[in-house]
């Protein structure tokens, strides 16, 4: 069922990772994404993988949820790794017709797969441990300087947080609609692609209609609760960096340093 998607969900908790300042978490995450694409040998890859593993363990969220979030993208992972496997350069170690496998291809496949997996795990870790409100709040604060050039920072972050709030609601609604249309004999399991896309119309039209209705309702509800844009707004939870955040920065710095050192002393394999 659609509801089983774990990616993008939030699991309330009190772990070290949960307690990190969301702004710090976002910065660390961005640095991590950058550094993961700078791993060119197994040593630096191991450093980033170890760093990911450390975060997952510290988040105290059962591993099955991380596996679930991987399951969603497993298809993409396989496709990209297969492509990389066959498009390597250098000495051929196995050939069948035009398909040839090289050591370089194997390395590439391993790297691409590991990078995507680390990326998904790290972003899952971020969304699992940070509530959507915290996340958007942090983005709003990080982007505050853009207010100077009249970039609508508050509006955008409000939209993001509302969108995130309605993800589970709309997923549930999709589920219900699918059941209801199936009860009217809609066939969504068989037929060619064209037929299947057409079979989605009875789901998508009501879903859009209801999304608009909800949007209208939520706007009314927000006005009733004295919402008038970002000016003069306060927040219940004020953010401040703690020793924990500093430690996460140091850890990130060590990883960056480690990857650079590895890259200098060990030759690249891809």
């Amino acid at each position: 069922m659609v509801r089983d998607v774990a990616f993008g969900q939030y699991f309330p908790g009190k772990s070290i990772i949960h307690r990190l300042d969301p702004r710090g978490k976002i910065l660390v995450f961005i640095a991590f994404v950058a550094i993961i694409f700078c791993t060119f040998n197994y040593c630096s890859l191991a450093v980033t993988a170890a760093f990911t593993a450390m975060f997952l363990i510290l988040s105290k969220i059962p591993f099955k949820f991380y596996f679930k979030s991987l399951k969603v993208i497993i298809f993409i992972v396989i496709i990209t790794s297969v492509f990389n496997l066959f498009y390597g350069t250098g000495d051929v170690i196995w050939q069948w017709g035009i398909i040839k496998i090289t050591w370089n291809g194997i390395h590439r496949a391993v790297f691409v797969t590991s990078r995507i997996i680390c990326l998904i795990l790290a972003s899952s870790c971020l969304t699992f441990t940070t509530s959507p409100t915290e996340l958007t709040d942090a983005i709003e604060r990080l982007m505050k300087p853009l207010n100077v050039i009249h970039f609508p920072v508050h509006e955008i972050s409000m939209m993001m947080s509302l969108a995130l709030r309605f993800v589970p609601t709309l997923l549930e609604e999709t589920d219900k609609l699918m059941q209801a249309q199936k009860a009217r004999g809609a066939d969504m399991e068989t037929g060619n692609i064209f037929k299947r896309v057409k079979a989605l119309i009875p789901i998508l039209v009501p879903l859009f209609v209801s999304a608009f209705r909800r949007a209208y309702d939520i706007a009314t509800a927000m006005e009733c609760r004295c919402y008038r844009g970002g000016t003069g707004r306060t927040r219940m939870k004020s953010l401040h960096l703690s020793a924990l955040d500093v430690m996460s920065f140091i850890a990130m710095g060590l990883v960056i340093g480690g990857v650079i050192v590895c890259n200098i002393f060990i030759p690249s394999v891809i």
């Binding site: 509530s131 309702d217 939520i218 609760r225 004295c226 219940m236």
Partner: peptide
Amino acid sequence: DNQLVASIVEEDVAFGPENLG
């Protein structure tokens, strides 16, 4: 469903007073 704005109960309840500053 259509009047809760936040993804966590207490953050939703805080929405009104936050708007009032």
